[in-house]
Computed example of a mutant assay.
Amino acid sequence: MRWEELDQQPCSLARTLAVIGDKWTLLVLRDCFLGVRRFDEFEQRLGITRHLLAGRLKKLVEHGVLTKVAYQQRPLREEYRLTEKGLDLHPAMLALVSWGDRHMADERGAPVLHVHKGCGKVMHPVIVCSECGETVGARDVRVEAGAGWAEEAQLPRQA
């Protein structure tokens, strides 16, 4: 499987990685969820080249994850905002952060806490079954081919 062909795979993860699967794109998205919207803010916070940043932002806009919104007319200046499609990445981002807090934090602990606005408590993401509400872990799920699965492809054996 070639990196530039990921978006053609019969796999939702591969197709997702084709859009957001590099480190700079994930860090751009992190900053979006932290409220960063302007090109120069991204550039300053991330310390990457303008060319690299422009490419990542362009791809996110092309795929409808971000939208450009004018905040000044003369000269025209635009900022980047998460779309509904982009906001739908929040659970995945929280899951990655939670994993990092658990396995990559130093002795001081998590660098950022996520506080639920509704109850005011520090929260941790939990995956639950949409049908019964039970907490779901890796060993609690079976994978079956869906309508979008290519018949010539084979599902891997599950542990």
Score class of each variant (00 low, 15 high):
66 L>K: 00
131 E>H: 14
16 T>P: 01
20 I>M: 04
117 K>D: 14
126 V>K: 13
148 G>W: 05
4 E>N: 14
87 L>N: 08
74 R>Q: 08
9 Q>P: 01
62 E>Q: 15
32 C>R: 03
25 T>P: 04
68 K>W: 06
41 E>M: 13
75 P>K: 02
1 M>K: 13
119 C>W: 03
2 R>H: 14
139 R>I: 11
150 A>F: 10
39 F>P: 04
129 C>D: 01
62 E>R: 08
102 R>D: 08
101 D>W: 03
64 G>E: 07
122 V>T: 14
74 R>K: 10
28 V>L: 05
54 A>M: 08
25 T>K: 11
96 L>Q: 07
73 Q>D: 11
81 R>C: 12
20 I>S: 03
26 L>M: 15
127 I>E: 06
54 A>N: 11
68 K>N: 05
112 V>T: 14
86 G>W: 01
116 H>I: 10
140 D>E: 12
49 T>K: 15
116 H>F: 14
87 L>R: 10
146 G>Q: 06
111 P>A: 07
1 M>I: 12
130 S>C: 10
55 G>C: 08
159 A>H: 15
120 G>F: 11
31 D>F: 12
103 H>A: 07
74 R>I: 01
34 L>S: 15
14 A>G: 11
124 H>F: 09
107 E>R: 06
56 R>E: 01
111 P>D: 12
69 V>P: 02
20 I>E: 00
85 K>Y: 00
106 D>N: 11
42 F>C: 05
5 E>G: 13
18 A>R: 04
15 R>H: 05
25 T>W: 03
138 A>R: 12
30 R>C: 09
76 L>Q: 10
51 H>Y: 15
139 R>K: 15
6 L>K: 13
71 Y>A: 05
54 A>G: 10
24 W>V: 05
103 H>G: 03
113 L>T: 15
140 D>Q: 11
146 G>M: 06
99 W>I: 08
64 G>Q: 04
38 R>Y: 09
123 M>H: 09
